[in-house]
Design a protein around this nucleic acid. Structure first.
Length: 574
DNA sequence: AGAAACCATTCTGACGGGTGTCCACCCGT
């Protein structure tokens, strides 16, 4: 059983317990455990086999949860979950997806009216049965009816790159509003999370009303959900929520800090403030009634003796430990990148010629690129057999003298076949400058098989890195089953590298895996996997993800000149 | 449910806005 599956069980238990009105701290214990487990790199199942002590050493896991994990790992199920499911029809939990309905109200609706589905809830609203319940009224009933539509729309998350487009559009739309003094996007968008659930904007204005009026007029706004003196929520036609908060100038930093989050980061920060006899809210840092900071984020953190945290690190993971130790990483930037080590050309399924890709890369200031077209097995992508690949490399030799200070590496993205063999013969692979290996076929194999295939590829002397190591497609397809921890250890042992695929739908390794790779000392190559000139622009998404993983320039190999990069690979060492 | 220290008990993640109904609930970071 994978960490993600165990975490999902605990999340479900938390939902069911919450619905039953259980002790909120008990509910939180399950949620905390779920988060801990899902962010762990090593498989919890292995810890479970090592014995209960290995599990209870994890923060937030005590004797009881350790026992439940062990049961889950050994039997694949959990009696508590089965009991809860028997007591609460699972469909009731979908009622909590209706905005405005939490555990208390859903419990009331279910207990009094025996309503179990969204359809039954809609009926009850239309027959005005909801408004007669204690604590409910006509207005609530109306809002529930509206909310059901929203729940059915299934408020999806969107890719960071898509969020970026909308954010830029809204910023441009609000820019120039009368009395608007400052404006900034916040939330998970600002933290650079690979997918974004809603958009948050923060403004300073002489009067909030013109700004709110203007947001309401944004072309894609469908509905204004709430509007008060300082806070406004709208929903776009796509179902995406946009929140706007307007604060006084002297609170801008505190509000930006609060609104950027994450929630977990804020909770820790505010707890630290409390210990110092201070209070932090979105209006500032307060000692008693006296505001001692708030205009800029630096002041807010500074009031607690903390450095300013890059938003990408504000996830409530290790950042406060790093700050205490004075070892907050200096994160990599787009300007540090000197080359791109994964891209395709018209030789396989790319849209641009090698020369076009090279010209575009040179314009970006790169010193080198690797052309890594697909190997023969990927026939739908016009993958290259040995003859065509060698002929491509001949063509590269012809181009070699064309540019000064720019180099095209002879590369290939070789498939790791279902049986673990590589899709090209050794004598061909050995002639390449740069080889990335990846899994495209047999993604449904067992965790053991896929892990063995990838580790086998890492062991091959010609292979430099594993490309898109989990195969996930964000919002589309989950990662294949793979023991990433074992893969990272193998990369360390064989002196190999791992790719962070910068394509905005992939972005694997993810942030947590990047941090794990760094901890093992495994170098990362951030590569775009571009299939067109425009695809090269994806580098910024990869860098953003790397920053979330706490990577510095030194952790990323394509910040190096090629000459230095290659010396990091065993095959080039003597 | 975990964790600390009180080994049975106590505390536990911070803080505030908006809404609808009458103080609670839900929501956001």
């Amino acid at each position: 059983m994978t960490n993600a599956e165990i975490a999902a069980v605990f999340e479900q238990i938390a939902d069911l317990l919450e619905f039953q009105g259980a002790n909120p701290f008990r509910v939180r214990a399950y949620r905390t455990a779920a988060r801990t487990i899902s962010e762990l790199t090593e498989p919890v199942a292995e810890l479970a086999h090592a014995g209960p002590d290995a599990l209870t050493e994890l923060p937030g896991i005590g004797a009881d949860l350790a026992d439940k994990i062990t049961t889950l790992v050994n039997t694949g199920s959990l009696p508590l979950l089965e009991e809860l499911k028997a007591q609460v029809p699972e469909s009731v939990l979908t009622l909590m997806r209706v905005p405005g309905l939490g555990p208390k109200r859903v419990a009331a609706i279910y207990n009094k009216l025996k309503i179990k589905t969204l359809e039954e809830l809609r009926e009850a609203c239309l027959q005005h049965k909801i408004r007669d319940l204690e604590g409910f009224g006509a207005k609530t009933e109306e809002n529930i009816l509206k909310g059901i539509e929203a729940a059915l729309l299934a408020t999806q998350r969107i890719l960071w790159c898509d969020a970026d487009q909308i954010v830029q559009e809204i910023l441009a739309h609000l820019e120039g509003t009368k009395g608007l003094r400052r404006l900034a996007p916040a939330g998970s968008y600002r933290r650079g999370k690979d997918t974004v659930g809603d958009l948050d904007f923060l403004a300073v204005a002489d009067d909030p009303n013109p700004v709110m009026d203007r947001l309401a007029k944004y072309r894609a706004v469908k509905d204004v959900i709430a509007r008060g003196d300082t806070k406004m929520s709208v929903v776009l036609q796509s179902g995406l929520h946009v929140d706007l908060r307007v604060v006084p100038e002297e609170s801008f930093g505190a509000a930006l800090q609060y609104f950027t989050g994450s929630k977990e980061h804020n909770v820790i920060l505010r707890g630290m403030a409390k210990d110092l006899g201070l209070k932090i809210n979105e209006y500032g840092v307060f000692r008693g009634d006296k505001r001692i900071a708030g205009r800029e984020e630096e002041e807010v953190y500074g009031a607690l003796g903390l450095p300013w945290f890059p938003p990408e690190l504000r996830e409530g993971r290790k950042e406060f430990e790093w700050a205490a130790a004075g070892s907050l990483p200096e994160l990599i930037t787009l300007e540090d990148i000197r080359g791109d080590l994964h891209m395709h050309s018209t030789w396989s399924d790319g849209l641009a010629t090698i020369e076009e890709m090279a010209e575009a890369a040179r314009k970006k200031g790169y010193q080198y690129i690797a052309i890594t077209d697909h190997s023969q097995r990927v026939s739908v992508a016009n993958g290259l057999n040995p003859e065509r690949l060698l002929s491509q490399w001949n063509a590269l030799d012809q181009l070699a003298g064309k540019w000064r200070n720019f180099r095209i590496l002879k590369g290939v993205e070789v498939d790791i076949l279902e049986d673990g063999r590589l899709d090209l013969p050794d004598e061909v692979l050995n002639q390449a400058d740069w080889v990335v290996a990846s899994v495209h076929f047999g993604q449904n194999q067992s965790r053991e098989e896929i892990t063995r295939r990838i580790i086998g590829a890492l062991k091959h002397p010609a292979v430099c890195a594993i490309a898109h190591p989990t195969g996930r497609l964000l919002l589309e397809r989950p990662a294949y089953q793979v023991d990433l921890d074992a893969v990272l250890r193998a990369a360390r042992d064989y002196g190999k590298m791992m790719e962070l695929n910068a394509h905005p739908r992939r972005l694997d390794l993810d942030d947590v895996a990047c941090a794990a790779a760094k901890a093992y000392g495994v170098p990362i190559a951030i590569s775009t996997d571009a299939h067109s000139i425009n695809g090269l622009e994806a580098m910024r998404y990869g860098v953003l993800q790397a920053r979330r993983g706490g990577l510095t320039k030194a952790d990323v190999v394509n910040t190096l000149p090629w000459g230095e990069l290659k010396r990091r690979l065993p095959r080039y060492r003597r």
